[in-house]
Amino acid sequence: MLAPMAGVTDRPFRQMCSRLGAGLVVSEMLSSNPQVWKSAKSQQRMNHDGESGIRSVQIAGADPDLMAEAAQFNVKNGAQIVDINMGCPAKKVNKKLAGSALLQYPKLVEEIIQAVVNAVDVPVTLKIRTGWDPDNKNGVDIAEIAQRNGIQSLAVHGRTRACMYKGQAEYDTIKAIKQAVDIPVVANGDIDSAAKAKAVLDYTGADAVMVGRGAQGNPWIFREIHHYLQTGTFLAAPAMEEVKQVMLEHIQNVHQFYGCHLGPRIARKHVSWYLAEQDSDRSFCRHFNGLEQAEAQIDALQQYFEEIAA
């Protein structure tokens, strides 16, 4: 029941979460289109340096042959698990009939799964949503197709594609899916605390929970969930000194990995997530977002924590 992490593309973020969550399965999403594999963005996503735990690569696409080729490519590149993405609701993914758009076409879903499973010798897993829209929740049918064709584990986000990330995730469909199949089922959606993780596991009967947005600015959530599931007691929140050290290490890694131009821009969203509660009026984040240089950002963070400690 140790929580895996939903597909992410930021290597420094994956690295930090992996370090703070021992045994964590961290996955990043890559296109099945071989024409983009050598792009700078894809190369960054394929970089696993400094990551521990099991290495899973999530692939997205709508062509069974290209998906099989992508699976083989990533296994050769070190993937220990291939995860098929049929859960992403983003328009840029869905307009190519990838991600959760595939849930409308069960026959194509089956063809893709068969092609990928037959292409590699590592476990193949699948990420889906509960259906296309609230009137077409076919998650149980898709789960049965997945099990019948060799999928080893199934992650389910408790919203339809049409729901995007609006409203609250529902877990009734995940519960029904767990009752319908024998393969491990991973519950995903709105899991932002150890207590919520336990409640979702108890209600759905799922074998694990998957954390996505709940880890933004809170990479400690994984050890908190693990501790609570193991002991039934809540782990104390990290001390401010640890928050400082983790933030500085993370932001410095972002600067180093993405470079002097892109690094400071990407750092802004992470700092905003980390300080969502402490910087309630967003005054520091507004100041931080105006800084263009990596050194200036690090200096500002150092000063921020010094003022808090004073």
Rank of each mutant, 00 (worst) to 15 (best):
I145D: 03
A119M: 07
D121M: 09
V122I: 13
R148C: 07
G131I: 04
L126D: 13
E144S: 10
V124H: 01
D141F: 06
P123M: 05
Q147H: 06
N149I: 10
G150R: 08
P123F: 14
L126Y: 08
V122P: 05
K127P: 03
S153I: 07
N138F: 06
R129M: 13
V122S: 02
I128N: 06
G131V: 01
D141A: 15
N136L: 06
I151N: 09
V124L: 10
Q147V: 14
S153R: 15
A146K: 10
G139P: 05
R129W: 10
T125P: 08
G131E: 03
T130L: 15
V120I: 03
D121N: 14
V140N: 07
A119N: 02
D121R: 14
Q147P: 12
L126P: 06
V122R: 01
L126W: 13
T125R: 09
N136H: 15
D141S: 12
W132N: 03
V140S: 09
V140G: 07
D121S: 15
N149D: 14
T125C: 13
Q152K: 15
R129C: 12
G131Q: 09
N136E: 05
T130Y: 01
R148T: 11
D121C: 14
A143R: 04
Q152S: 15
T125G: 13
V120Q: 07
R129Y: 10
D141M: 14
R129E: 12
I142G: 09
A143K: 04
A119Y: 00
G139Y: 01
L126V: 13
I128D: 01
D133K: 01
W132D: 07
V140T: 13
V140Q: 09
I142E: 01
A146M: 05
N138E: 08
D135P: 00
N136G: 00
V124I: 08
I151A: 02
S153H: 08
Q147E: 15
Q147Y: 11
T125M: 13
V124T: 13
K137R: 11
K137A: 03
E144Q: 15
V120H: 03
A146F: 02
R148M: 05
R148D: 10
G150A: 09
A146Q: 02
R129A: 11
A146R: 12
D121L: 14
G150Y: 01
